[in-house]
Every structure is written in structure tokens, then in C-alpha cells.
Amino acid sequence: MNRLNQPYKFLFILSFCILTALNVYAQKSKFHVIAFYTAKNDQAHISFVHEANKWFPEVAKKYHFTYDSTNNWNNLNPEFLKKYKVIIFLDTRPEEPAQRKAFENYVKNGGGWMGFHFSAFALNQSTYNQDWDWYHNEFLGSGEYKSNTWRPTSAFLRIEDPKHAATKGLNHIIKASPNEWYRWQNDLIKNKNIDILLAIDSSSFPLGTGPKQSEIWHNGYYPVVWSNKNYRMVYFNMGHNDIDYEHGINKDLSHTFDSPEESQLVINTLLWLGNGNKTYKAAY
């Protein structure tokens, strides 16, 4: 009788091992992330891209997702994106019409997006013209770039929406790493689709050191992290490391992810985007 049962025992054990292995693999790869970058202009942006491409793989191992990165923006197409649940723009934005259309379809069909600093930049009569209304005015809501602080300096950021998954567990005020802070053409407060998650706290003023007085902010309301309620997305104004430009050596003077609270904010956001119920379906 025992001999007759041996094949069945073997099949049972084999099936159990296969199911266990598949379960472990699923746990290790809950979702897939793809980051796009250019890393050619401004040493501060290049520094951040290199930092991010080291930091995100470490976070991926800890939180059980996969992280890939590419500087080939032609990969922004429906076939390539089918594998990924979250797209990250580390520094720039797509420029070709086909790439832009693929991205728009991606987020309109449930794909997640996280963008940093320069990915929202647009200024007419510059290399990055405001020639993509859907992205800058509807999706981001910010419109054109208006001005920035200088030099890159740290700031205290106030959480405006403590109920959002991105801000869960964080203190009401967090300290960010040094950054070049942007302000925008559009008033995000007036946009009913925009959920402002963090803004610069008044304790940060004066913000910036100049030398131009216009590069030092003394008052005002400046959103720096926000989401669009119609999409699964979060934009971070952070992503410009401080660089020693003055001595001509382009040495890193700061790193964005050196701030534990800022890093946790990014992790919270990525897990919210990756573990959401919506799944991207390619639209051809």
C-alpha cells in the first residue's frame, strides 16, 4: 500500500515546492517600476539621476518590487510599458509626439507615475518649450516655470494632506535636503483636481541665498509635492543636488535621499502607486 502511494507523495511534494517557489517569487516582485532619464544637462540633475539609480534598487530589494531604468525615451511605447505598473521621470520629459501619446495613454489607463524636479520644467523660448498642454496644464496643473531659489538650500516642508498614503506616518513638518525650489505659472490652490501634499513652511524663510534678490523667497505659498486626483501620480519638486560649481570641480555637496523623512515620503508614494488596485492596460 505504501509503495502505491509513493508516486502520489512525490507529485504532492513536487507540486508543493513549485507553488512555494512561485509564491516566493510573487512576494519578491510585487510590481515593476521603470525610470526614464536623460542626465545630460546640469550637473545637479545628473548627480540626482546617478543617486536615484543607486538608491531605488536598494529600496526595491527591501520592499519587494523591481526597478529598471533607461535613457532611451523610445522605450516609452505601449509594448514596452506593458510590464510596468509605475513610470518615473527622473529629470526630463518625453519630447517626441509618439512618446508623449504613449505616456498619456499609460496614465489614462491606470498606470502610475512619479516625477522629480526638472521633469515638470517648461519655459517658452527655451530648450524645453511649453508645447505639451495636456502634460503641463492638465496632468501636472502647474503650467510654465516662473522662477527658482538659489543657491540650493534645505527647507522645512509642511504636510498639507495628512490623509494621503504618501504622507502616512510622517511628522507634520519634515526637513528636506538642499534643493533648487521652483514656483509656477498656475496657482495650484485654485485647481480642484490638484491635491497639494506638501508646501514650504514659513519657518524656511528666507529661502535661498542669492546672489540675486529674486532668488531669495521671503514669503508666499509654494506647493512642492502634489497629486492629480484624476490620475495615479505624484510630482516632487525635489531632485536638484547642491554642487560645487564655484571651484570648477562639480563636486556633490548634498544628496536628495540623505533626508530620512524625504526618503520615506518617496517610498510611501511608490508603494501607493505600485500596490494600487488599478492596473495599466495598453491602449493601442
Rank of each mutant, 00 (worst) to 15 (best):
Pro223Ala: 02
Asn228Gly: 03
Asn228Gln: 05
Glu262Lys: 08
Val266His: 10
Met233His: 10
His255Asn: 09
Lys251Thr: 15
Ser263Pro: 12
Glu246Trp: 15
Val225Met: 10
Glu261Gly: 00
Asp244Cys: 09
Leu265His: 11
Ser259Pro: 06
His255Arg: 14
Glu262Val: 09
Lys229Pro: 00
Ser227Ile: 03
Ser254Glu: 10
Lys229Met: 00
Gly248Thr: 13
Asn268Glu: 10
Asp244Ile: 06
Tyr235His: 07
Gly239Ala: 05
Asp242Cys: 00
Ile267Tyr: 11
Tyr231Glu: 06
Val234Gln: 06
Trp226Met: 00
Asp242Gly: 06
His247Val: 02
Leu265Ile: 07
Ile243Cys: 12
Asp244Ala: 14
Phe236Cys: 03
Tyr231Ala: 03
Asn230Met: 10
Val266Lys: 02
Ser263His: 10
Asn228Ser: 06
Asn268Thr: 09
Ile267Phe: 09
Ser254Tyr: 09
Ile249Glu: 14
Val225Tyr: 07
Phe257Met: 05
Phe257Tyr: 14
Asp242Gln: 15
Glu262Cys: 04
Thr256Ala: 08
Leu265Met: 10
Val225Leu: 06
His247Gln: 12
Asn241Ser: 13
Ser259Lys: 08
Asp242Arg: 15
Phe257Leu: 03
His240Glu: 08
Met238His: 12
Asn228Met: 01
Thr256Ile: 14
Glu262Ile: 07
Val234His: 04
Ile249Ala: 11
Phe236Ser: 03
Asp242Phe: 01
His255Ile: 03
Gly239Met: 02
Met233Gly: 03
Phe236Arg: 08
Ser227Cys: 05
Met238Ile: 06
Asp258Ser: 10
Ile243Ala: 12
Pro223Val: 01
Phe257His: 08
Arg232Tyr: 12
Ile249Cys: 11
Arg232Val: 01
Glu262Trp: 13
Ser254Cys: 06
Asp244Phe: 12
Asn268Pro: 07
Ser259Asp: 06
Ile267Asp: 11
Met233Lys: 09
Asp252Arg: 15
Glu246Ile: 09
Ser263Cys: 04
Pro223Arg: 04
Asn250Leu: 08
His247Lys: 14
His255Gly: 07
Glu261Phe: 01
Val225Thr: 11
Met233Gln: 13
Ser263Trp: 09
Leu253Asp: 13
Lys229Gly: 00
Glu246Cys: 04
Gly239Ser: 07
Asn241Lys: 14
Glu246Gly: 14
Asn241Ala: 11
Val266Glu: 08
Asp244Lys: 12
Tyr231Asp: 04
Glu261Thr: 08
His240Ala: 04
Val224Gln: 13
Tyr231Ile: 00
Gly248Pro: 12
Asn230Pro: 05
Val234Pro: 03
Leu253Cys: 14
Lys251Ala: 15
Phe236Trp: 06
His240Cys: 01
Ile243Gly: 13
Asn228Arg: 04
Ile267Glu: 13
Val234Tyr: 05
Ile267Leu: 06
Gly239Leu: 00
Phe257Arg: 08
Trp226Thr: 01
His240Ile: 05
His240Leu: 00
Asn228Thr: 01
Trp226Pro: 00
Pro223Lys: 02
Leu253Val: 11
Arg232Asp: 07
Gly239Arg: 04
Thr256Cys: 09
Asp252His: 10
His255Gln: 11
Gly248Trp: 13
Leu253Thr: 15
Arg232Pro: 01
Ile267Thr: 14
Gln264Leu: 06
Asp242Ser: 14
Thr256Pro: 07
Phe236Gln: 04
His247Pro: 04
Ile243Arg: 15
Asp258Met: 05
Gly239Cys: 02
